[in-house]
């Protein structure tokens, strides 16, 4: 009886994983298909990759996606860290108001944030829609997640440490970078990671605030997918590959390091 239950639970989890990976495997396989068909595999070919690399709009979209994700991660991690530390030392009332404001983009559906930003950017004349608005919007929705992942770490921190640093003659900046930041590093790193993937994957907000032909991978897939286009499979496979490698590195490296320490 017990054994039967164990087999069933493994079967169920296996089925779940098949469900999750079926479309991913399907995409990768059909990116190498020789024909346009999405149902019959006509032999191995790299023609869709060739077409992707020769397509300027596709390469540009990949470039913009990375550039914006890296810039948005850098900016939002730095600003988020400074703000989180500052808020932890502020009055309770200030903290409360800022937390509410900060939670708004997280609680709000993406599309509501998106139309709000669209109206804001449209009413400011000197901002040209495109790269700049995309970057501003991404920084805007990334910072709240960075702050949210750092705050709990700050709460467990001993407040006397920063105080001691200041008493010993450190400037506030030194106290922050040399005393507080090293202790909340795990929070900062996970915040940065969330920011990067949020920016890398974003579709809804980017779709509304962009303009002048600037697009990221998500917008590209959305606009191209109105017709069957196997190049999308090629670009998807590249996204899948990058994310998989990054995640495996992030998850496996610490495990290996732990083992080394143990040995």
């Amino acid at each position: 009886m017990k054994k039967k239950r164990k087999i069933f639970s493994k079967f169920y989890l296996g089925l779940m994983l098949v469900f999750f990976y079926l479309p991913i495997v399907y995409t990768v396989i059909f990116s190498f298909n020789d024909s346009r068909s999405l149902t019959v595999f006509d032999g191995f070919s790299l023609r869709w990759y060739e077409r992707m690399f020769n397509d300027r709009t596709m390469m540009q979209a990949i470039g913009y996606t990375f550039l914006i994700a890296i810039l948005a991660t850098l900016i939002s991690t730095i600003v988020g860290t400074i703000t989180a530390i500052a808020l932890s030392k502020s009055r309770k009332s200030v903290q409360l108001v800022m937390e509410q404001l900060n939670n708004l983009p997280i609680m709000n559906p993406d599309i509501v944030t998106a139309v709000g930003l669209l109206m804001l950017f449209s009413s400011i004349r000197f901002i040209e829609k495109g790269f700049m608005t995309l970057l501003l919007a991404h920084v805007m929705f990334c910072i709240p997640y960075v702050i949210l992942s750092i705050m709990p770490k700050l709460r467990t921190l001993d407040p006397n440490l920063a105080e001691a640093a200041l008493d010993l003659g450190a400037t506030p900046w030194q106290a922050m970078t040399k005393v507080i930041v090293p202790q909340i590093m795990p929070g900062i790193l996970s915040g940065a990671l969330i920011a990067f993937t949020m920016s890398f994957d974003d579709f809804v907000i980017s779709y509304f605030v962009t303009g002048n032909g600037v697009s990221n991978i998500s917008i590209l897939v959305y606009t191209m997918s109105k017709r069957i286009n196997p190049s999308i499979n090629a670009i998807s496979t590249i996204v899948i590959l990058i994310i998989t490698v990054a995640l495996i590195l992030i998850n496996v490296l610490p495990m290996l390091r732990k083992k080394e320490v143990k040995a």
């Binding site: 991913i24 399907y26 994957d201 998807s236």
Partner: peptide
Amino acid sequence: VLLLITLPTWINMLVRTYAWMGMLQ
């Protein structure tokens, strides 16, 4: 298993949805 279930959520939603579009044709 935890890693395997987390991984797809990190892959762009548009990419995953497009794959289903092909399979449900």
